[in-house]
Simulated scan of single mutants.
Amino acid sequence: MTDEKPLLEISCLTAGYGDFKALFGVDLHLRAGETVAIIGANGAGKTTLMRAITGIVRTASGAIRLDGEKIDMLPAPEVLLRGIAMVPEGRRLFPSLSVEENLLIGGHARRGDGRWNLNAVYELFPVLKERRSDPGTALSGGQQQMVAIGRALMSNPHVLLCDEISLGLAPVVIRDIYAAIPKIKASGASIIVVEQDIGQALKIADRVYCMMEGRMTLEGRPENLSREAIHDAYFGVSA
């Protein structure tokens, strides 16, 4: 990677829920065209970080910049319009809507005439075209995850945040879901993937961050990180 200015830059970020702080001085950057993975155990602060980036969780201090512009005080709908979309943990589809209607909701915040529309999502996940008239929650877990990813892509984001997209899925389904990541990246989106599965994260990421107890404990390219260093950062083992 070159030293160009980051597309997304997080500096000294502190955030939480009321009096409870979940993030402490977090730094992270994402370059255009890059896939970054964030690994860490349950309770490490990964989901809170994703929610802070999207404006769902208010920040206490620090800064979040997109293309050099501070966005940390913007409400969530405005962050989406600026080009950051999230695939939330748990998918959160609308049970009363069909697959296609769930996808179209993502298009309500559509930015320009970008790559992603219904046809492009159906090309990425052909099974969704076959099931487009079915209720979204009538699908298998993996297919519901495809809908959640497609819904986020319908806004044509600059940055796609994927929060635990493999959670609860069978290995063969996880493989199919992750096979879409390079195609999404090739469309021009930059991606942050939150994962508990270290092996999966290392396979798809240009760079990896590790979080523990609301702090970044490790950052680097997968090929430069030893198993021992990752294990220590993940579990908090002192050198």
Rank of each mutant, 00 (worst) to 15 (best):
G236P: 10
T48H: 03
K70N: 15
A205G: 09
G106W: 03
L74V: 06
R51K: 07
S140G: 11
R151H: 12
S226K: 08
S11M: 13
I230D: 03
E164D: 05
G90Y: 01
H158G: 13
P77L: 07
S238E: 13
D27S: 11
P77G: 06
R131I: 12
G90Q: 02
D113M: 14
T35P: 04
L139D: 05
P135W: 11
G55I: 02
L118A: 07
I38V: 06
E195Q: 08
T14H: 10
P135F: 13
L118I: 08
S190Y: 04
T14E: 08
S187L: 06
K5Q: 15
D72L: 04
A15G: 04
I10L: 04
L7S: 04
G112R: 10
G25T: 03
S98W: 04
T2N: 15
N102G: 10
I181V: 13
H29A: 13
A186I: 14
N42F: 05
R82E: 07
A152N: 03
P77H: 12
T54Q: 02
N117I: 05
G142L: 07
N42Q: 10
V237F: 15
G45P: 00
N42W: 08
L225I: 09
R215K: 15
E123S: 14
R151G: 04
I56M: 09
L128W: 03
R132Y: 10
S11W: 07
V193G: 05
I181E: 06
I105Y: 08
L81Q: 13
I191D: 03
Y209F: 08
L118Q: 06
R92S: 04
P182K: 08
R110S: 08
L8S: 00
D19K: 12
G55C: 03
V121Y: 01
G220N: 11
G55H: 00
A37W: 02
R58W: 01
T54A: 01
G25E: 04
A120C: 11
R111N: 12
N119C: 14
E123V: 15
G68T: 11
R110Q: 13
G188V: 09
L104N: 07
D19F: 09
R31I: 14
L80V: 11
E78W: 05
I149R: 00
I192D: 00
I71M: 09
R65P: 09
K70Q: 15
A120Y: 10
G25I: 02
D72Y: 01
V193A: 12
I181M: 04
G43N: 06
A85W: 02
I174F: 08
